[in-house]
Simulated scan of single mutants.
Amino acid sequence: MTLYIGREASKLWKRICAETTTEINLLLENWKYLLAGLIFQYIHGLAARGVHYIHRPGPTLQDLGFILLPELGQDKAYISETVFTFVFVSFFLWTFHPFIFKSKKIYTVLVWCRVLAFLVASQFLRIITFYSTQLPGPNYHCREGSKLARLPKPDSVLEVLLINFPRGVIYGCGDLIFSSHMIFTLVFVLTYQKYGTRRCIKQFAWLVAVIQSLLIIASRKHYTVDVVVAWYTVNLVVFFIDKKLPELPDRTSGNSPLLLPVSTKDKDGRTKEENHKLLNGNTVDPADWRPRTQVNGKIVDDATNGMHADNAMNGA
């Protein structure tokens, strides 16, 4: 029993080391994209902080969701934040699962490059939207009479740049259309929908996204329009940007070496070069191809089934 545990621990450690080496190489190639995405997260927070200075509290607007969904109240407002934290943490841990599990389908660095690209595009549209029109915030701390509903004029530029983190992010007002929580939730769910392997988890993730939407409205953190706009905007952003980004290499085999996606131009050039060599009687790199023979409608490798292939071609 002790020998088995030691052997498995050794395999796990080797897997972690190999995966770490691969991800570091990818990080060195893509660190600029990751850094740009992280910097924009700060810019987005800065923009949300800035709109709070020009927010003017007023009567809560008429909203269909407020009429249909019962109000949770201030004492239960933590429920929606708890659900969002669960979504964020679970997705973050899932992106690092190749370090532990044998069934690998993604590279962590490449997945986060895509996720940050989706987030940046969605947040850019969000900044334009909530600066275009400032609505009176429906949240409790944004209503008339609350000291947090209006921010006093800043004493210095540094006060604005520090955005009073994390209190300034949690108790923001004015950044309504569209919901930032739904941006993160939908980007995470859509990413797992494409690269995840468990169908039941995918269905559960969409259910959680719907529940999260209802909880945001019931907590009076956003109007219904903020959630509705987030649903179709984020889905469209992910749909169009995903087509522009290079596809992730497939890692279904698990222990395959790092194979980064090759551009279509490179593939076409390589195919033409190989065809030119074959037409001139030259051979190509044996590592790039394996002779295959078709027997009884099936394609088999000559290297492993040479005897059956020869018999079939000789009529035996």
Rank of each mutant, 00 (worst) to 15 (best):
G315Q: 01
D242M: 05
K153R: 13
R220E: 12
S179A: 01
S263M: 08
L135A: 03
I211Q: 09
A18M: 04
L207R: 09
K147Y: 05
G281L: 12
Y232G: 01
K14Y: 12
V227T: 10
Q41R: 08
F88A: 10
P138K: 02
T224Q: 06
D301M: 04
A312V: 08
S213G: 00
L35D: 01
I67V: 14
D302V: 14
C173N: 04
L236P: 11
L125Q: 11
L110M: 13
V229G: 06
N282K: 14
F66D: 06
S132Q: 06
F88W: 12
G306F: 14
G269V: 02
I241K: 10
L186T: 02
L26S: 02
F84I: 08
A205S: 15
K105W: 13
L135S: 00
L258R: 08
A48N: 13
R290A: 03
N282A: 12
N235E: 04
L236F: 14
L158R: 08
K298C: 10
D226V: 02
W31E: 00
L68D: 06
H55P: 13
W206A: 01
I177D: 08
I106Q: 07
F184N: 15
V115H: 01
T252E: 11
G269E: 14
L69Q: 05
E29Q: 15
S156K: 00
E273L: 00
A316D: 15
K153I: 04
F88R: 11
E144K: 01
T304A: 04
P154V: 04
D155N: 11
K14D: 06
H181L: 09
A36F: 03
L93R: 07
G196W: 08
T21K: 10
F239A: 09
Q203C: 06
G174F: 06
F101L: 12
D301A: 05
F92D: 03
S219T: 07
P291T: 03
P138R: 06
D175F: 05
P246N: 03
T85W: 08
L93M: 12
S180C: 01
I43Q: 04
D75H: 11
Q41D: 06
K32V: 09
D268K: 00
T60C: 10
C142Y: 00
T283G: 08
D155Q: 05
A77V: 10
